[in-house]
Design a protein around this nucleic acid. Structure first.
Lengths: 208, 208
DNA sequence: CAAGAGCAGTACATACGTGTACGGCAAAGG
DNA sequence: CCTTTGCCGTACACGTATGTACTGCTCTTG
């Protein structure tokens, strides 16, 4: 283990790194600036992280860990799958279109032409987990007969995600859209859920 | 007018710029490299474009102009709105998720933390036009009674676009997804259309 | 054919990035 | 209490970006 004192110091350094990332973007944020902001030495940064990509990879992983915990908590309490989706939707939207996500998405995309490490990190630590969660819920909905027979859970999941997020993350990455406010998040979540149910819900069953 | 000789030269320079953009990404592509690749002088680049952003802005505008022409042609021949959508979908997908689009989206996102000029250029020269076209079609579908009464054309348009593109452009920008092949493009287009019709189509009218 | 405009090629001033090296201070441990 | 470890602060070597300046060739034009 890396120890407990260093643990705090790491957090401070990563906080400084994120601040600068938010202020100036990935490419314009330098290791020296991060070191200065955190009152650390660049030597320390290179000793601990090796290079810039790895440092920001740590940022992404740390963030994903926190988000995943919150998402799991949200579904853990729900026995009804549709209710699970109803509480999951706004959470997913909050995280995926929040300021932190915008900034990290931008960083990953800036890095795509260089190493691709950050994109991989977001994919494996956040996106795949998210999709797995939704797939699981959709599978349950098909199995329990609440979705029409023959519905492919992965198709339902992809449809729901498309409707939930739409073009928002891309527009945000391009700087054409600010983080969504709570009302918009609620609206989008409800609409995505309503449309998904309309498409895949078993309406016959309702009237039995 | 800027002349006819210079017109060709501009295209050569912009072609060199795009090549380098594709090879190294936006931030790592320098004006000097572009000049060398095009066998031009950096002085010429600065004289003609002023700076890097404006040069790439020209690239985006030129591309958007060509794409727009093709899209208009595709809908121009169609009298039936659903057929218009059926031919528009694959085209939209081809352009929006093609290699050129991936590269330009990445550039615009890299520039989002700097000037935002490229994002604005994509938005106003391509995206808004595309949305306007689809909105128009959706409006016709509502007016003609092929969509259920009360359907908000803009909602239908946004839904269709979400289903058509989904997470694809973002994943591509992050380097997690290659350009779609024709089969996938056909599949996605059909599915997006089918789902949109299922959601908003007036099924009563069909049986009259 | 001579004069001029335009542009390629190069050099330059300035600034900043990455990754490494070294001196000095402070806290931990024998 | 002295040594050793660890880290801050700064300096350094090297590479490369932007935007400007200058020289000489070439092609056009009177």
């Amino acid at each position: 283990m890396t120890g407990e004192g260093p643990e705090d110091r790491r957090r401070e350094i990563e906080a400084a790194a994120f601040e600068l990332l938010a202020e100036k973007g990935y490419r314009s944020t330098s290791m020296l600036q991060i070191a200065k902001r955190a009152a650390a030495s660049n030597q320390t940064l290179y000793a601990w992280y090796g290079n810039k990509q790895t440092l920001f990879q740590s940022l992404i992983e740390e963030n994903a860990k926190a988000v995943k915990a919150l998402l799991r908590d949200a579904v853990a309490g729900q026995t009804d799958e549709i209710e699970a989706l109803r509480s999951l939707g706004p959470l997913l939207l909050t995280f995926t279109t929040g300021e932190k996500a915008i900034i990290m998405n931008r960083a990953a995309i800036a890095d795509a032409s260089e190493t691709g490490i950050l994109g991989t990190a977001i994919d494996t630590t956040a996106r795949q987990e998210m999709i797995a969660m939704i797939n699981e819920i959709m599978t349950q909905l098909v199995v329990s007969g609440r979705f029409v027979e023959g519905t492919e859970p992965s198709v339902a999941a992809e449809t729901y995600i498309s409707l939930l997020f739409g073009e928002v993350p891309l527009q945000q990455a391009m700087g054409r859209l600010a983080p969504l406010d709570v009302a918009t998040i609620a609206d989008r979540s409800e609409r995505a859920l309503a449309l998904t149910l309309q498409l895949f819900g078993n309406h016959q069953a309702k009237h039995d």
